[in-house]
């Protein structure tokens, strides 16, 4: 469920060239945490000074899954949970491009959980931006595998009692080479992390803790989207390199943010080329040069 916004966006959006202005107004609720997150990605793409023709965005299903539809890049709105394997196929076909998966917590670590861990394990050179709002928003506010214990949702009307995923720990232990977390109000730091993640060779993950104003905030009586966004920001603690076992998120308590992991590892294609060159010698032509059309 997402409420149509009728409010007019100012005439000249500073990131206009990166947005599909012909699709504005967007479907997101006002003060949803998605707005700042999309803006941070646009800023990161500006900072990087990369050819935007060579950047693709892939989304799954959900409120966050709609991001692909608003970015003026080659953009793919796929099926629920399958953004990551779709992106993997796209990346392997076009290793010269930057492929970014932009999706939500339910899409990526519930229905897409198996793909998430295996793509991290293979160290596929893509960037995953996971907007975690602790709930299934598009379908109206049901419990997610990220919902903190005690938080209410439409399907945990008396509060959640299932242990949620610690997404950075899941990514790192599966094989990611870059892992960071910010809240939706850490706009500059988030943009910097996005830029680092996109530049990083290998599977990179940035988790963004964002308020769902319409459902999570309302069902849990946590005020407006804006006040919840501020709460997340003000109750966060920057701890770069934190022990990932210590950063699980409890209901309305401290959120550890920062860059947790930044290591070097051969990517999937590095490993494939290195291995095959060893086996076949000169007969082997390394895969992934040029536009991959060979």
């Amino acid at each position: 469920m997402s409420v149509e916004t009728t409010k007019q966006v100012s005439d000249e959006h500073p990131m206009e060239h990166l947005l599909r202005m012909d699709r504005i107004p967007h479907i997101w609720c006002s003060t949803c945490g998605l707005g700042t997150t999309v803006r941070a990605l646009a800023e990161a793409l500006e900072q990087l000074e990369i050819d935007h023709d060579k950047v693709a965005v892939v989304s799954g299903i959900g409120c966050t899954g709609r991001v692909a539809g608003y970015l003026k890049l080659d953009s793919f709105h796929t099926t629920h949970g399958r953004a990551v394997p779709f992106a993997m196929g796209l990346h392997i076909a076009r290793p010269d491009m930057k492929v970014i998966v932009f999706s939500g917590d339910g899409d990526l670590v519930s229905i897409g959980g198996n793909h998430f861990i295996h793509t991290a394990r293979r160290n596929i050179d893509i960037t995953v931006i996971c907007v975690n709002n602790f709930i299934y928003a598009m379908t109206g506010g049901q419990v997610a595998p990220t919902t903190p214990i005690r938080a209410r949702s439409k399907t945990t009307p008396y509060g959640n009692y299932e242990t949620p995923f610690n997404i950075p720990l899941l990514a790192a232990s599966s094989g990611a080479v870059y892992v960071a977390r910010w809240t939706a109000l850490h706009v500059r730091r988030m943009a910097m992390s996005f830029a680092e993640a996109i530049s990083k060779r290998g599977f990179s993950l940035v988790e963004v803790i964002a308020p769902c104003s319409t459902l999570y905030a309302r069902l849990n009586k946590l005020g407006t989207g804006l006040s919840l966004m501020k709460f997340y920001h003000d109750n966060s603690e920057i701890r770069h390199g934190a022990d990932l076992n210590d950063i699980a998120i409890d209901y309305q308590s401290k959120i550890v943010v920062g860059k947790f992991l930044d290591v070097e590892k051969p990517t999937y294609l590095d490993a494939l080329n290195h291995h095959n060159a060893g086996i076949f010698g000169d007969k082997y032509k390394p895969y992934g040069g040029g536009n991959g059309s060979d």
Partner: peptide, 10 residues
């Protein structure tokens, strides 16, 4: 899903 992504990749 992967073969669709690869197909769009050419």
């Amino acid at each position: 899903a992967a073969i669709l992504g690869a197909s769009w990749g050419g």
